[in-house]
């Protein structure tokens, strides 16, 4: 499985396009679900939502498998679907904000930060010291990521954590290479504390 995942990450091939055509779509899900979930979690900071959108990503991929021509690697294609779904979510959340404002029901607007930290501080196998250290580490990183705008966060995590090339990030985000470079530069400045955090969390 690891070999398959690795080969799929690097370059598109006939076997990748074939995978979307053959019945064994499970293999695609098994190979990429962790990565897509991690990307969505980093972007959304909500484990439940990341789980839902990960499922949705694969369902969309299956529905649109005919449109996959193998121009980009499968992981880039899947990540783009995931990012688009999260963009839709932000748009809906923005609409929900206005609904809440006029008294209609919507989501509570809380991100899953506390939930993620709590979930990983109660590992029964970890020693109390190790769990505390992991929690502290996660808390700090989460705070740093939280300083970035949605777009900066996505670009930053895709390149810095997921190891995508700038070109791949541009493809996933649907932005020009120049914009990607600008977002990355700003994001790293914020993360390193060289620039004040943006005041408005503009939806990507």
């Amino acid at each position: 499985m690891a070999t398959l995942t690795h080969s799929m990450d690097t370059a598109p091939s006939d076997s990748q396009t074939r995978l979307l055509e053959i019945a064994d779509f499970d293999l695609v899900v098994r190979s990429y679900q962790r990565r897509i979930y991690r990307t969505l979690l980093g972007r959304l900071r909500d484990p439940d939502l990341a789980d839902n959108l990960t499922q949705e990503t694969f369902i969309r991929a299956y529905e649109k498998r005919a449109s996959y021509r193998g121009e980009s690697s499968l992981v880039v294609w899947l990540t783009r679907i995931a990012i688009n779904l999260s963009l839709d979510h932000y748009r809906n959340r923005r609409a929900n904000f206005w609904r809440n404002l006029v008294g209609m029901d919507g989501d509570d607007g809380q991100d899953g930060y506390a939930e993620v930290v709590a979930a990983h501080s109660s590992d029964p196998l970890a020693s109390p010291e190790r769990a505390a250290a992991a929690r502290q580490e996660l808390e700090q990183v989460w705070k740093v990521v939280g300083k970035l705008s949605e777009k900066q966060r996505s670009v930053f995590l895709l390149h810095f954590v997921e190891g995508m090339t700038l070109q791949e990030v541009a493809e996933v985000m649907g932005l020009h290479l120049g914009s990607i470079k600008t977002h990355l530069t700003r994001a790293l400045k914020v993360v390193r504390g060289k620039k004040p955090a943006p005041r408005i969390e503009a939806p990507a």
Partner: peptide, 11 residues
């Protein structure tokens, strides 16, 4: 640190 933290969060 970010890689480890994200891997932990998604674990």
């Amino acid at each position: 640190r970010m890689n480890d933290a994200m891997a932990l969060a998604a674990d």
